[in-house]
């Protein structure tokens, strides 16, 4: 909040400087009976590789919709999502699935683990969709869970894990097929403050150490300010304030 500097490479006209992932003039309109509701109103933004960006806004501001478009779960009504210099617009359904599998990983507020599978099975499932098999897959699943500090809880089902642990499993799963971007939709919404700090600390470490790119949707000002490199504020489907550099280090 304190320092608000216009960041040149995030202006739509400046996308040529190649942010890793971004949106160009993206609009998403939902039809509710007769009326049309614009969840996103021609939004442009971009995130560089190795950046940790928070998207903040009240509910209904369109931040989750934007995240779903970036994650390839949905397609915009107009405009385009760009990843690594390529537009997702011409992608077939199959290519979109491939994009979700290889290029981005997603984590959610509700963790979205498959409740009937153990931690390691959840991670293995993502690896299976990625085409990894056999021993290699088992080893990679264990390695991923070890990375998020769950080496001792491989065979626990989600119900037997705490919220923080469940979110760690979902991070391990999101990173299974080595995506370059992690999209987090209110990742700490269901966690207490201590657990929330732990999870975001983990993500921050991955950004700093592995040059992972993280885009996190949150409504928590304090958390966004402490962990993100910058914050994008949204309201009524528009970006009202961008590039708030919040982190000193």
């Amino acid at each position: 909040m304190s320092t608000q500097v216009e960041h040149s490479n995030l202006h739509p006209s400046a996308l040529s400087s190649h942010p890793l992932i971004g949106a160009r003039e993206v609009a998403k309109i939902y039809r509710m009976g007769q009326t049309e509701v614009a969840a996103l109103d021609h939004v442009s933004m971009g995130v560089d590789e190795g950046e940790f960006v928070a998207i903040q806004g009240t509910s209904g501001s369109g931040k989750s919709t934007l995240l779903n478009l970036l994650g390839g779960l949905d397609r915009p009504t107009s405009g385009e999502v760009i990843f690594d210099g390529r537009s997702l617009a011409p992608f077939s359904k199959k290519e979109m699935a491939r994009y979700r599998r290889r290029s981005v990983g997603m984590i959610f507020q509700g963790f979205n683990l498959i409740m009937t599978m153990t931690a390691v099975e959840n991670v293995r499932l993502a690896l299976a969709f990625g085409g990894l098999r056999g021993r290699e897959r088992d080893a990679r699943a264990e390695e991923l869970l070890a990375r998020v500090g769950l080496e001792g809880r491989l065979d626990h089902r989600p119900a037997e894990l705490s919220g923080g642990e469940q979110q760690r499993v979902s991070i391990a799963r999101a990173l299974a097929n080595r995506p370059r971007v992690l999209l987090a939709d209110e990742p700490t919404g269901n966690l207490d403050s201590t657990r929330a700090h732990e999870i975001l600390g983990l993500l921050r470490a991955m950004v700093d150490r592995d040059r992972l790119t993280v885009i996190m949707v949150t409504h928590d000002q304090e958390l966004a300010a402490s962990f993100a490199d910058r914050i994008i504020f949204m309201k009524d489907g528009k970006i009202i304030e961008r590039n708030a550099e919040v982190r000193s280090n």
């Binding site: 994650g71 359904k93 199959k94 979700r100 290889r102 997603m106 979205n112 683990l113 969709f129």
Partner: peptide
């Protein structure tokens, strides 16, 4: 439904 959504989110193709 939710499980199918999850599978799609982590990269399952329609065919799968």
């Amino acid at each position: 439904t939710r499980e199918i959504g999850i599978m799609k989110a982590i990269g399952a193709e329609d065919g799968e």
